[in-house]
């Protein structure tokens, strides 16, 4: 009996992971991973170093076999790996080579390669030797090359890694519009939350060997499902409250206020570009807040009020 071919619908998932177990060597990194990647959406995968994000991407892209579960692909999936590995050829030739690997007829490659480079504002690099590119330009070409394939699902592993802040911001802006073209499904492995907020429709958080949060970024940020996820998402303050609850706080939730109900001692201060990040010890916890320069000295007493945060049962 011949199985029916998978039906690709406009809204259906292009890629689905079912009960996936991901290992590196003998070590189990992730277990029971369930996810769907739908047409037209950008899904960002966040997680701490070593959690298995890149390995998961390799499994989803078919580069590695899962140790358990299965990956169902209803379209062609391309993966752009973390290192912008380019051959010792011109930029244009590199993009054309990728199109050749993808199976694009020879006659169509030059125009398609050029268009992809132009879309990422890298057209002027076309005739340059790939080895002569700066890190930022190499990443730009790497991304353009992946977009040129016009895959049904595109998996990008840390496309902005290792860039200086201005280059990163520029590429992020260009990528944000390029990734929205067409009805491609895109999965991005990221380690920077700001990149996820800028690019993603949905956010998936990997922690402690599995998927710990999945949803629109604003929703996950406002209502993280656990203390661990909240801490990973930048809720760096924590207060024990009466009734067995824990309140997790981002610096933005804590306000220096001379009339505030809470008093604490500044334990550490880190001067930043736009203020000072202070870590303050309170009777029932520790919080962080940003204050304008010059800010209080270490050991000084400050009064605070809490304006927001998320409550969890203590064992959550």
């Amino acid at each position: 009996m011949v199985a029916d071919p998978p039906v690709v619908t406009a809204a259906g998932p292009v890629l689905r992971a079912e009960g996936l177990t991901v290992t590196r060597g003998r070590r189990v990194l992730l277990e029971g991973v369930e996810l769907e990647l739908r047409r037209g959406e950008v899904l960002a995968v966040l997680g701490p170093n070593g959690v298995g994000k890149s390995t998961l991407l390799a499994v989803l892209g078919g580069l590695r076999e899962p140790a358990g579960g299965r990956v169902v692909r209803t379209g062609r999936v391309a993966a752009a790996l973390q290192a912008p590995a380019l051959a010792r050829r011109s930029v244009q030739a590199n993009v054309e080579a990728a199109l050749a690997w993808w199976g694009v007829p020879r006659a169509a490659r030059p125009v398609r390669a050029r268009a992809a480079l132009e879309r990422l504002h890298a057209g002027h690099l076309a005739d340059r030797a790939a080895q002569a590119l700066s890190g930022g330009d190499a990443r730009r070409v790497h991304l353009a090359r992946a977009l040129a394939l016009d895959a049904d699902a595109l998996l990008l592993d840390e496309p902005f890694a290792g860039l200086d802040a201005p280059t990163r911001a520029e590429l992020l802006t260009d990528a944000a519009s390029a990734l929205r073209d067409g009805d491609r499904a895109t999965l991005l492995v990221l380690h920077d939350r700001a990149e996820a907020w800028a690019l993603a429709d949905r956010l998936l958080v990997l922690l402690d060997g599995g998927v710990r949060a999945l949803g629109p970024p604003a929703e996950v940020l406002e209502r993280p499902p656990s203390i661990a996820v909240a801490e990973f998402l930048g809720f760096s303050g924590r207060l024990d409250e009466p009734g067995g609850t824990v309140r997790c706080l981002r610096p933005a939730h804590v306000v220096a206020d001379p009339e505030g109900p809470l008093a604490g001692i500044v334990r550490r201060r880190v001067p930043e570009e736009d203020g000072v990040l202070c870590e303050v010890d309170l009777d029932h916890g520790r919080v962080q807040l940003r204050v304008p320069h010059p800010g209080p000295a270490e050991g000084a007493t400050v009064r605070l009020r809490i304006d927001g945060g998320v409550r969890f049962a203590r064992e959550c």
């Binding site: 752009a80 590995a85 992946a146």
Partner: peptide, 17 residues
């Protein structure tokens, strides 16, 4: 570099390619 070959594989390169 293994990264280059892995990347080619990730873009669908066959063994002869």
């Amino acid at each position: 570099p293994e990264e280059l070959l892995d990347q080619a594989r990730a873009f669908g390169a066959t063994v002869p390619r």
